[in-house]
Design a protein around this nucleic acid. Sequence first.
DNA 1: GACTGGCACTCGACTGTACCGAGTGCCAGT
DNA 2: ACTGGCACTCGGTACAGTCGAGTGCCAGTC
Lengths: 340, 340
Amino acid sequence: MSLDDRKLDVLRAIVEDYVATQEPVGSKALVERHQLGVSPATVRNDMAVLEEEGYIRQPHTSAGRVPTDRGYRLFVDRLSRVKPLSPAERRAIERFLAGALDLDDVVHRTVRLLAQLTRQVAVVQYPSLARSSVRHLELVPISTTRVMLVMIADTGRVEQRLVELPAPVPVDALTDLRRRVNEKLVGQRLSEAPPLVQALVDEVPPDDRNTMVALATVLLETLVERHDERIALAGRANLTRGGLLDFQGSLRPILEALEEEVILLKLLGEVDADTLRVRIGDENEIDNLRSTSVVSTGYGPGATIVGGLGVLGPTRMDYPGTIATVRAVARYVGDLLGNN
Amino acid sequence: MSLDDRKLDVLRAIVEDYVATQEPVGSKALVERHQLGVSPATVRNDMAVLEEEGYIRQPHTSAGRVPTDRGYRLFVDRLSRVKPLSPAERRAIERFLAGALDLDDVVHRTVRLLAQLTRQVAVVQYPSLARSSVRHLELVPISTTRVMLVMIADTGRVEQRLVELPAPVPVDALTDLRRRVNEKLVGQRLSEAPPLVQALVDEVPPDDRNTMVALATVLLETLVERHDERIALAGRANLTRGGLLDFQGSLRPILEALEEEVILLKLLGEVDADTLRVRIGDENEIDNLRSTSVVSTGYGPGATIVGGLGVLGPTRMDYPGTIATVRAVARYVGDLLGNN
DNA sequence: GACTGGCACTCGACTGTACCGAGTGCCAGT
DNA sequence: ACTGGCACTCGGTACAGTCGAGTGCCAGTC
């Protein structure tokens, strides 16, 4: 059966009240605080139906109702009105991010900003190498058989690696290699680099072949195999807001999960498209986080995505506000990365 | 007045029991679990004196005694026996750290290891540039007016910067400069570099003076002004052990403090000499941490100190064990940095 | 003088009872 | 289809009583 409009109104009212007060909400309080135009008794009947359908539940027999994960899901999907950010907030975001000096600083500021605005735990993934593209490659001779390979990504990330050459290489040859490598790779996504690197090896004159092989090996290592995805976190202290009511009493599993970089990457890694994703309670695949909700999205210059960011908090969170903030911050960071 | 030996024994017994059970300890339980050779009544008299002197206190009138910060302090300074690590632990440390690939990995492994062994929050400062010394400096011509300055520190950290030269510089001159710079700086602590860099400028032949000035500027910037001290943390979930009894009920201030890099640096930064430092409860200068104890020490190759590390936990912690572990880990990491 | 056994006392923790009130489900009435 | 009314449930709080761990003190002993 489908729920009629008033029942949906009731559900929305319950979610909003519960999020605001953190207390089970009863029929009487509901009609007082919202213009539902009906009596408590009617609301009670609606509630009975909502409970039967699994959208709300009673903590104990004679208490008010509390939304279930399923209730929040319905709320997020169909009931919540978009809550646009105030101009003041937009300005705050812009101003705060604009002051960033380098990539590290951008990420740090972003994660702190997110934590502060949403008052929850914020997670930001550093722009991943695999998803960004090459801005410049440099080959720096350290000695006759050693070259330092420096790669600068369009996101501002710099990686360097030392390459041991099989034999001494004259400076001219190195210059030639540098030109070839740059011609081939600059502007390319790193994820698409491997075949190009392979092609490079084949194109190089036989004399330099061995040198190129050594370079290519390190290049591939640096660019692809190194899955050194980094993560920045902030706002863990926000988990303690709302006493111990949220998270069914123990922060332990959550703090543990937040220490595992692999878990966090998984959390953010699944941003396929540009779409924002909300995972509510049990919908989370990670057991330790089944009492939390995660709002995450990808970010990057223009339409490309170079990383993920998001926030984590109690299932009892202000979804419209959080979603709006996450989306806005992601957009600003993306723009910022595009402009530098 | 000074406390006689038995009173000190009583204090030690109280600390040990309280740390183990987390419950106020009474006179009867004490004589049962320790060979004090006297009756509960006598112990009670001793306790009364200890309480008067401020080493222990009663949570409420008819409860057992609990050590005060002052009591722990006396325990740490004079009563605790060194608790040597088991060979198994030593081997575990060695094996775990030996597998590290690069500097990042060393720091990560160290902090996790510390958290795991002490079951507390571990903090490790990355080897600070200011405290390490120069292993090698390289000047790499990128174009006629551009040089890349690469500095490798003895801790394995690599920094590079691009230098714009005021005028084209012939390769020979650059070779000469490279020799001079290396002769002057290799082996020197970075913190002592500035005057040496200044001296370099004065010694250089007039023709190269301007080039050297440009180099020196960037050098100083890179080596000194950048106070990019980084910190790694692990084991935050350990704060939730022991229910909410420790930390007087709220993790909030502690989690907040742990998010402030500045605070953590201050915590570790004050390692003057090679000595290990224990700050108990109120002895901490940071207000948010007055309900915790911090055990910290410096680490580095040989006698030099390149950074700090330590753990943070409830004042009710196993001091002998923690101290032994922190000291051992610091030594292993120091050795590791010396060998690579 | 130092230690001990004994005793009265304190007070937190726990138990049981009673009561209040918010909230419910249901039903008869409009 | 909605509403008012009513009986019922049950968590929370307040209060009293009991239990027991632990104390401080004092008189007695070695």
